[in-house]
Design a binder for these strands. Structure first.
Lengths: 202, 202
DNA sequence: CTCCTTGTTATACACTTGTAAAATTAACCC
DNA sequence: GGGTTAATTTTACAAGTGTATAACAAGGAG
């Protein structure tokens, strides 16, 4: 009975490997198929190591949620930054990025659904969710405000736009046969234009 | 060791009791907490009975999905029917019903999320989902057409409206502190009005 | 080269999982 | 009443669950 050989890794490396394995497992097998052993096997690590880096499997899942939302936020931010200075172009870039990889990814959908399903039962997940969506809406409010939308309407518009994009993203990634990413972008942009109509930049 | 007393029930009664118990369990404990024993205890029945009426726990969950989507469809249909003959009122009734019980119910959210998370891995669930959403969009297309919207735009508008309503419903039931049901209705109605603008009934 | 720290594995444990098969008994027919 | 049927419960089982703990060994310090 020979023991498995192993290498000692940096703490951050191991933590990130476990987080990535958790996301991959949630994406591929759902929350039901994501166990301590499944995660650790995917990370190439024995099951016992999980508790050495996290308080438990629930804590690891919460941490994975935090990391995933951060990745999505960065993808959006990068798209906006690449769009240049024109406010409308920046807003459109933000929306369009939601329907392209890495955001519109079936793996991300599965991961996201797993998190949503924990919001009511897991207080830590609920807190992360509230924070994350507050951040998303805040960013959109800023973009809308830059487009000349009245300040009083920005909050409500950000909520509605978030909802529209979320709904399109959801159906697009759940069942890509109904409509395409391009159609989704076009619908969101049309909504945006009718919203900004009559609210010029000065 | 005395056996539990029991009464023989009609097959439909037992099936519906198990379906309702499944929905309740999904709502309260999530997919992870919904086991054969949890479902059957909730239905007041021993665990072995599940297999007597369903092919297994997965089949029962699929059946619960079918029943749940039917309930939501009926709630929408009832709201539309109660709205009278005016096309715009009917459309608004459809949308508003999405943000009120029994549609905007945290229990329903949990059930729905559990089903969505099975769409990619379970072919039966995927088929039910595709059918259901085709039906929802078809109904909306009819309502939009009655409002005088050009036929060519109806399909795209139905997709976008479904997405907006889904997104608002999702966030409203996930975290009711961000905005109210009335605000959600108002946002959807505003979108509708700007869409129908210039498309009178002639 | 040896010691020591600690990252890592292996094992054990009590519990839950879904399902199969047998044992029971309620309800209906005669 | 007795007999029959099948709905229901009970038990059993192999596999999987999360986690605690002990055993090990990798890699640096001296």
């Amino acid at each position: 009975m020979t023991r498995a050989v192993f290498t000692r890794e940096d703490a951050d490396t191991r933590r990130q490997a476990l987080i990535e394995a958790t996301a991959a497992s949630l994406a591929e097998a759902g929350i039901a198929g994501t166990s301590v052993r499944a995660i650790c096997m995917r990370a190439g690590v024995s099951a016992g190591l999980l508790r050495h880096y996290f308080d438990g499997v629930d804590a690891l899942i919460a941490e994975t949620y935090r990391a995933t939302t951060a990745t999505v936020g960065e993808a959006h931010a990068a798209a906006v930054a690449a769009a240049g200075a024109d406010p409308r172009a920046r807003l459109i870039a933000y929306v369009t990025a939601s329907f392209r990889p890495p955001v519109a990814d079936p793996a991300l959908l599965a991961t996201w659904l797993a998190f949503w399903s924990l919001v009511k039962t897991d207080a830590a997940i609920a807190a992360i969710h509230a924070d994350t969506y507050r951040g998303y809406r805040g960013e959109l409010e800023g973009l809308l405000s830059s487009c000349g939308l009245e300040q009083a309407q920005c909050r409500s518009a950000a909520i509605a736009l978030t909802a529209l994009v979320d709904g399109l993203w959801l159906e697009l990634t759940l069942d890509p046969t109904t409509f395409t990413a391009e159609q989704a972008s076009a619908m969101a942009v049309r909504w945006l234009d009718s919203l900004l109509e009559g609210n010029s930049l000065d």
